[in-house]
Design a protein around this nucleic acid. Sequence first.
RNA 1: GGGCUCGUAGCUCAGUUGGUUAGAGCGCCAGCUCGACACGCUGGAGGUCGGAGGUUCGAAUCCCCCCGGGCCCACCA
Length: 880
Amino acid sequence: MSTSLPTRYDFAASEEALYAMWEDGKYFQPETTTDTDGVSFMSKPREERPDPFCVMMPPPNATGILHLGHAARMTTEDIMTRYHRMTGKPTLFLPGTDHAGIATQSKVEHILLEEEGKTRHDLGREAFLERVEAFVQDSQDTIRNQVRRTGASCDWSREAYTFSPKLNKGVNEIFARMFKDGLIYRGARSINWDPKLKTNVSDDEVEYKEEKSPFYTFQYGPFQIGTVRPETKFGDKYVVVHPEDERYAQYTHGDTFECEWINGPITATIIKDEAADPEAGTGAMTITPWHSQVDFEIAQRHNLDIEQVIDLEGKLLPIAQEFAGMPIEEARQRIVEKLEQKGLIVSIDEDYTHNVATNYRGGGVIEPQVMKQWFVDVNKPAVQVNWKPGEMLSIKEALQSAVRDEQIQILPERFNKTYFSWIDNLRDWNISRQLWWGHRIPIWYPEGAVGDETQAVLEEDKQDGVTYVQDEDTLDTWFSSMLWTFSAHGWPEETDDLEYFHPTSVLETAYDILFFWVARMILASTYARHEVPFKTVYLSGLIRDRSGAKMSKSKGNGIDPLEMIDKYGADAVRLSLIVGTTPGNDSRLYEEKIKGYRNFSTKLWNIARFILNKFPDVTAAPTPVTLADNWILSRLAAVRDDVTTGLDTYNLGVGGETLYAFAWHEVADWYIELLKDESQNDSGPVARFVLEELLKLLHPYTPFITEEIWKHLEKPEALIVTAWPTPLEQDKEVEAAFNVVTDMIEATRSIRGTLRIPAEKELTASTTADLSEEQRRAIAQLARIQFEETPREGASVIAHGRLNALTLSIEGAVDLEAERSRLTEELQNEESHSERIQKKLSNTKFVEGAPTEIVQKEREKLERAEHKIGLLKGQLEQLG
RNA sequence: GGGCUCGUAGCUCAGUUGGUUAGAGCGCCAGCUCGACACGCUGGAGGUCGGAGGUUCGAAUCCCCCCGGGCCCACCA
């Protein structure tokens, strides 16, 4: 019936063996889920299958190692996956890795430079790509093994990679479709250039950092203009003021004037535009359209000349004359010196803070440039979605509609607001990168017309007899990861998986990539498949250290999840990452926390060890024989329902905590303590049942130790595919018996917390009220206790009894007068409360105006209040 | 500037739609080497719920203001 457990749980040995057992058993594959006749659902036609559960792993970058954030992702997704699998649905957790354009390329470039002193140009494109490829393959192996260590039950037979030939097909396909629909275009725009990595990045990849730098005010003809970037001012020949600005009312738009400037006299033109803020400084500014997005827009509005001042290396161009070729920092200083000599400096504010744009990957200072790039048009209507047949939406509208029309639910809800405001500010998405590592833009130009968008064609539109050259650039890495929910299922081919598992059930990721990834997956899926990519977005918080700081290598405050798994076991790490977390909120992690959950593993192990040793052979149904049995069964049912509800509503942390407390403080500290008494010798079936149900409920959270214990129960099936606990027939009886006891306790207003009933100690309840005949009978029956006489003034004990190891006694009244006034006061409160609700409910404006469920709630409140009034009155009567 | 979020025991956090005496884990103190577990058991100390005001019979919970921390977006000529 069962084999005994070793004294200690050797998690290291168990974890490896168990994961291998699960993989060998193909339990991670949806094909393994069968109907009651043992027929795989996946072998049946689509209409005969139940609704599946599918979650896509956010693919870790193929650059190295698994960090704590990844481990948290895996755990959260795996808990959902394992739960749904146990409910009998075909379940798919699809793993994979991301080629991560910028991150990977710069990492390999860095290694190359460090180890061989070479740049990627020394190697050439092809050789460099081979190097990256080798590096990635190596990293992927590491990642795969690390993911396994977390216990993630993902289907490795379906593993995907964002840069595989298969997914490349998907990228080319969607590019081609969007290109033909006019959603992708090439044009010269102001873009964010990173001179360090020599590529441009999208608006979302720009991270602003606060910095202190001198703020100069210069004399510019009759105007005074301010800047922190004197080095960009060579090309400035326009002064912009607000049309309503009184100070400059004497000038009209288009007026010109001569003035002395850095390299001699220039002619400047006055532009009136509302972009100039009269409140800021002097209200007048010069503009540098080539190197500022805002200025670029002003220039476009008025059709002004734009000139490049700084090159792609971050050095000044010949327009700067004597300063040409200088890097920015040096030039800035020299220019200030020169302007000072010319007497054109009005003031210098050394204490000025402003925001500097940097590349969030790699941290180079962004220099806006005007360049021809590929963009996705977010305003052109070209998207059809299946929940709004016949309408043609723009990308912006489709993104909004998916959430606004409740096709997608974002958890926590407050992120809706963030999401919508991001869309409101969304500009055309720059998708081309000057990197080598990535999906190459599937566009060809006739030789000699490279970069000319008017002659750009797709592969399929190449003409015979013309020699073509492919676009040099690659695509933003998010352009491929946005396809993840469907390209990983084989899109553009209509595979069975794609049809069955898409839209996926839930997308779990940290909130910091809501824009980068989540929004763009919605973009891709609505455009390419007319449906949403997932029904629910579960946004996790970030993991921080004990003091709330972000974990990072440079700070040295990071915790290596693998090291922790080695030390405390995967189950402990999983619990520490999930208990106490709620969607969208950051959580803190430190070693003691993990240690605490390792202790829990040991506790669970010993619970099992005790029960299996005491009751090795049990076949009978779990029929309660004592009050304690009843109690634990009814608590188990409540815990089961709480945990199930928690998992269904994505309250994973609460479920874990509930189980932790139940197992430790109720099963171990209370129930098992009672089991030690020989009068509980018939409780084997209940004890075994409690253990088994507990293991099932805990399995999604702590898969390894529960499966290991399960092995000793000698069951026909592995725990991983055992059916999730559901309500039992006998729940009702157990519940009824439990209610009698709790009612009794309620009536005697006793024991708060209810379950801390130590063995061999008294269960006490103080009361002034007598128990009803019915309650006495029930208690007497369950607890086999004898009642003494009715309460008398000052009596200390009105009932006393003993149930096996459990002594139950009910204390009598001490101060009838105090009790009377307390009850009276409470009654008054309750009555006025009920009056207030009645008043509210007699208000027709409220009843007709408020939502029905609110009114309903008020009615329920009233009922409760009146019930309580009845109780209180009864109690008062009994006091006389 | 716009928005979000947090402030509860020494530390990390729970506290459902307002409802008896505000909870847990760790830490601390006292006592337990009784055959599941010292990665343990039993008990205990410790909180004017950031501050002030308001609504209410009743506020950690709802509203206003203030203080302090974190985050996102816009923008800084």
